[in-house]
Design a protein around this nucleic acid. Structure first.
Length: 616
DNA sequence: GCGGATCAC
DNA sequence: TATGGTGATCCGC
């Protein structure tokens, strides 16, 4: 049924008074937007309602003024203001004919997107409220009524008492203390958060065995089947689930319910904390929900894109349609497609475990007191190379490309990338090539050095089938622009944090950096037996990777092989059943790829638990 | 393909 | 005194 829905009227004029932003003269500083930039990305998060943002913003401004960081932000804000002004100028030049042509194209795009709409699934986004703070409160009940935060140097998160003062995640500790002098700041305790997260996930498994845990505090579920099975209303199901999580773990969670991941994610923020919001699986309901939603609430619209959209009088998602013809002339196809999907409230309806996504890079970076001495830089580089090697070995990966990242004392970043003669993952190789790249940038003064491997080679699967399998997985798990990104399984031990720089994490802003030092050996002996397809699991060199290079040479054969074999796996593999993971005991698909991904992931968790046991 | 930027968390 | 780390993607050249 194709019913033409009432839509907001589209404007076909581009010359319209710009009221949203008072633009200062070109190239000069714009104090208003700089204040806003310095406030950070989490102003629009929950718990900031009663806060006097103007006062807070002024304190931040005064506290940070004059620092290198401040100057950097000021430069960036100036550049952005210029860019925004340039877009406004371009907008004025768009002709009526251009707009009419764009309209036709837009209608086609909308029809195409509309055809993909799937309202048959119930997707839930679960988000723990101030997760780290919430976990800490369980151990320190006396803190409940006091403003406190978790972090070191920079805050990871804070409780709602602290938010009343304007304290927020990603805020520098010294700034937060100025805003709220009585603020208590706790150090991070990752093992505790991991344990709690696992307890929560244990419940999530019952509602969706294929749920996708994005981070420790956030997950997507598809509860369509569960609702049908228990014959219960989706809201009731989610409400029960949240209650159970609270009863068994003591942590409150918020949830968003909707027909796809995009709207579910947005919805989970609406009644935060400890609430839920549902969007009916109904086209009108979705459209209405999106229509009045500020564009900044959409995942993927950050500070920069918001500034550009606001300058074009696009404030809410409904404005995207009203201004679509103009936007079409000003933004790239990718951005237009993304924005139209936002307006239509379309998104992914596929939820699958995170261990089924293919990693594309692995890296390590560190901030320290500014140095210009080469010997000191070499030392940092060596440490980073060693840490990167550990991650590579743990993940059984090597990279064909090495990237070097530097940050000047001015906060300006430099990145260099180079293909390697062979896939590398040893600290000695990483260091050697990294140093060669670094030397080209000398002399330089830096506050950060980072190394990253890309074009990864999976060493878990040896032999001639390896490339084929890799290709197949890529095909099967290919994602569209609704893709859920950021797939990480890293966690960090506080003990492994070096120097006194602000290494921290954030359940809202960051993720866990898992540096498994010991205890992997014993676990991997169990795994060795389990992984039938991997004979030489602990690849200490990369001879096999070089072997694989040879196999990729025969490209055409590889392709035809893949096409043929994929058909057979599609029909046969899924019915071959599930097995129990030897580590977590959960049911896992017997599919070799999925299995190994899962084991890699579980292994990390197991290693952490071992390490925790040792610590205590 | 590279380097810079943006975004999420 | 003073502002993180990991990973993904897009864009312009």
């Amino acid at each position: 049924m194709v019913v033409s829905e009432p839509r907001p009227k589209r404007e076909t004029t581009s010359s319209e008074p710009q009221t949203t932003f008072t633009v200062s003269e070109s190239g000069t500083d714009n104090p208003g937007t700089l204040h806003r930039r310095l406030l950070g990305p989490s102003i629009q998060k929950s718990g900031q309602d009663g806060v006097d943002q103007a006062t807070v913003s002024e304190i931040i401004y005064q506290a940070t003024q004059g620092s290198k960081y401040f100057e950097h932000q000021k430069r960036k804000e100036k550049d952005l203001t210029k860019k925004v002004e340039s877009i406004v100028q371009q907008a004025k030049k768009v002709s009526h004919q251009d707009l009419e042509a764009a309209e036709v194209r837009i209608e086609t795009l909308i029809r195409q997107h509309e055809a993909t709409r799937d309202l048959t699934q119930t997707i839930v986004h679960v988000d723990c409220d101030a997760f780290y703070a919430s976990v800490e409160e369980l151990d320190h009940p006396e803190l409940k009524s006091k403003p406190f935060a978790v972090g070191k140097g920079v805050l990871c998160t804070c409780n709602y008492e602290a938010r009343k003062f304007g304290v927020r995640s990603a805020m520098a500790e010294f700034v937060a203390k100025k805003i709220c002098p009585e603020l208590v700041v706790l150090r991070l305790n990752f093992p505790k958060y991991i344990e709690k997260s696992n307890a929560i996930r244990k419940i999530l498994f019952e509602y969706d065995p294929n749920h996708c845990a994005m981070t420790l505090d956030e997950a997507y579920l598809n509860i369509t089947e569960y609702c049908a099975k228990v014959n219960k209303d989706r809201e009731e199901v989610v409400s029960d689930m949240r209650r159970r999580i609270l009863e068994t773990t003591g942590v409150t969670v918020s949830a968003g319910i909707g027909p796809n991941s995009r709207v579910a994610k947005i919805a989970s923020n609406i009644n935060k904390p400890n609430g839920q919001f549902v969007i009916a699986n109904d086209r009108e309901a979705v459209m209405e929900f999106m229509c009045n939603l500020p564009v900044r609430k959409v995942t993927g619209v950050g500070y920069v894109l918001e500034r550009q959209l606001l300058a074009l009088n696009v404030n809410v998602c409904g404005d995207i349609y009203r201004k679509s013809a103009l936007l079409y002339q000003l933004f790239t196809d990718t951005t237009i497609t993304f924005l139209l999907n936002c307006y239509l409230g379309l998104g992914s309806t596929e939820v699958k475990p995170i261990d089924q996504y293919e990693r594309k890079s692995v890296g390590c970076e560190r901030t320290f007191r500014a140095i210009s001495d080469v010997a000191q830089m070499k030392q940092k580089l060596q440490q980073i190379a060693e840490d990167l090697e550990k991650d590579c070995k743990r993940l059984n990966l090597a990279g064909r490309k090495l990237g070097l990242k530097l940050k000047r004392t001015t906060f300006e970043q430099i990145s260099r990338q180079r293909p390697m003669p062979k896939p590398i993952n040893s600290a000695s190789d990483i260091y050697r090539y990294g140093l060669l790249m670094l030397e080209k940038e000398l002399p330089i003064t830096v506050r950060l050095i980072g190394l990253r491997l890309t074009d990864l080679v999976d060493l878990s699967h040896e032999g001639p089938m390896k490339t084929f399998l890799k290709g197949q997985r890529r095909q099967n798990y290919r994602l569209d622009d609704e893709a859920i990104t950021s797939i990480n399984f890293h966690a960090a031990f506080p003990e492994s944090f070096e120097d006194s720089t602000n290494i921290h994490d954030d359940e809202e802003m960051g993720e866990l950096n898992m540096m498994i030092q010991g205890s992997q050996e014993e676990v991997s002996s169990v795994i060795d037996d389990f992984r039938s397809s991997s004979k030489a699991i602990a690849a200490r060199d990369i001879t096999n990777a070089e072997e694989q290079q040879d196999s990729t040479a025969n490209h055409s054969m590889q392709l035809s092989e893949r096409d043929t074999l994929q058909l057979s796996t599609d029909s046969g593999e899924t019915s071959s059943g599930v097995v129990a993971c030897p580590i977590c005991g959960n049911q896992v698909s017997a599919d070799d790829q999925a299995l190994n991904r899962h084991v890699d992931w579980c292994l990390s968790r197991a290693a952490i638990r071992e390490a925790v046991k040792e610590t205590f």
